[in-house]
Design a protein around this nucleic acid. Structure first.
Lengths: 239, 239
DNA sequence: AGGCTAAATTGGTCAGACCAAAGTTGAGAG
DNA sequence: CTCTCAACTTTGGTCTGACCAATTTAGCCT
């Protein structure tokens, strides 16, 4: 039920990301793509516009050339994660590293510039993470909601945009490919949640940063474990 | 010499960002835009595709609706900065805050995962910042090059993508509207550069973070001062 | 006034055409 | 044989006009 231009765009993006077209190489002409995808040139053109805007290609009269993924937009991350059935664990770890760092920054901003009410809302989101009797799925959602709320409460537009972009592209993977295998260490999360609560209450920025540093490590451990379990499950299903 | 679809897209983006179309409001139909911009419907459609991909509008059969800027892509920052002659100083400060935080993260990653050669390259970029006899323009370029190089050396793809996006959108403003008014405190920069050099040499992560924290404050001071001077100059030219 | 149907509007797609700027090819000069 | 430059082809950018399906809107009937 997707649009034709979207189909063509996704196919092209996938071809580029998987390396079928090397960086610097010339992309097929619009008229070639028309016959290849059995689409109208207008649809192909809109697809090319998407690829261009993703920073994966540069178009000029005479031909379009593929760009290196390092010079692309942040929005390619979702495509990279969805490229294979199981996402690249290294990329997952990198994303978590950036997200956690930015959440720490956002929380610092909240502590310094926001009202006690805003801090209270965050503390409220900390409550479910102190419990040990919620299931893994709810625990994951609670972690997600906490980070998302802190980001949006930061009043820093670039921070909000980056976090939303990352979360939106990360969420499908986290909730589809890895959700069934996430086994968070709820006891450690509870400990850090209480420390974070104290730091928020006493407005101790240094303690806050320490908490997020610890949470960073824990989040990445959780994700790594979930990936390994998912990989085992996949191999078992294949063999 | 820009493309027609680009002109239409920029006009629409500007209209949305400036608040001419409120969030949730219906955008004019494609056929209306055709007559308004004297363009072909294909061009208008490509423009709408750009606006859509920027996250500024959602299109459905029946009509397109404007989205809030908080739910847009990171790529709108450049348009926001270029909206008026002088960029929003609050947004500038927010961008610098995020960039500096990410540079600190990237540098930490380099220190932990890169070779001594990579660290040596960064130290090399630190040399011009220790000098007091370079002009303001070169000093700005040296700071820019340092941050950019650290980001790209981090081997963290999301980090690279975010930093490149932010830098590319920030650079035009910094080099056009504010470059002539930047008066960096070279002595303080030199002090921090030496501290940073030591931290890199001794691979002291804690010291590294302290240095970047100090550099963050200094960078934002420099930018704030440049903005105020630019504003004074603009008012003088107007009055 | 409320709900339902029909008409008008709108986005998505398609076909074919023209232009200007790239890229490609070939012929001629050295 | 090589190099240069012209013409030729390909390619992207734009335009016109048309059709379909989904949505919106208007009007009608109850």
């Amino acid at each position: 039920m997707t649009m034709k231009s979207e189909q063509v765009a996704n196919a092209l993006i996938s071809d580029i990301l998987v390396g079928r077209y090397q960086a610097g190489e010339r992309l097929p002409s619009e008229r070639d793509l028309v016959s290849r995808f059995d689409a109208n040139r207008g649809a192909v053109r809109e697809a090319m516009a998407k690829v261009t805007q993703l920073g994966l290609a540069q178009v000029q009269p005479g031909g379009a050339r593929v760009c290196a993924r390092e010079s692309a937009s942040l929005d390619i991350i979702g495509h990279l994660l969805a490229q294979s059935e199981l996402p690249d664990p290294l990329l997952l770890d990198q994303i978590l590293l950036v997200i956690n760092s930015l959440v720490s920054l956002a929380a610092t901003q909240v502590l310094e510039h926001s009202t006690d009410d805003a801090i209270g809302e965050i503390r409220q989101l900390l409550v479910p993470l102190m419990r040990l009797d919620i299931n893994d799925s709810e625990h994951g959602e609670a972690r997600f909601a906490l980070m998302h709320h802190i980001m949006q409460a930061s009043k820093n537009l670039p921070l909000q945009l980056i976090s939303r972009t990352l979360f939106e592209q990360f969420a499908p993977t986290a909730s589809n490919a890895l959700a069934d295998f996430a086994a968070p260490d709820k006891e450690r999360y509870a400990v850090y949640a209480r420390q974070l609560d104290d730091a928020l209450l006493s407005k101790d920025v240094a303690a806050l940063r320490r908490c997020f540093s610890a949470l960073d490590a824990l989040n990445r451990e959780t994700m790594t474990r979930a990936f390994m379990l998912a990989q085992l499950g996949q191999e078992a299903a294949a063999g």
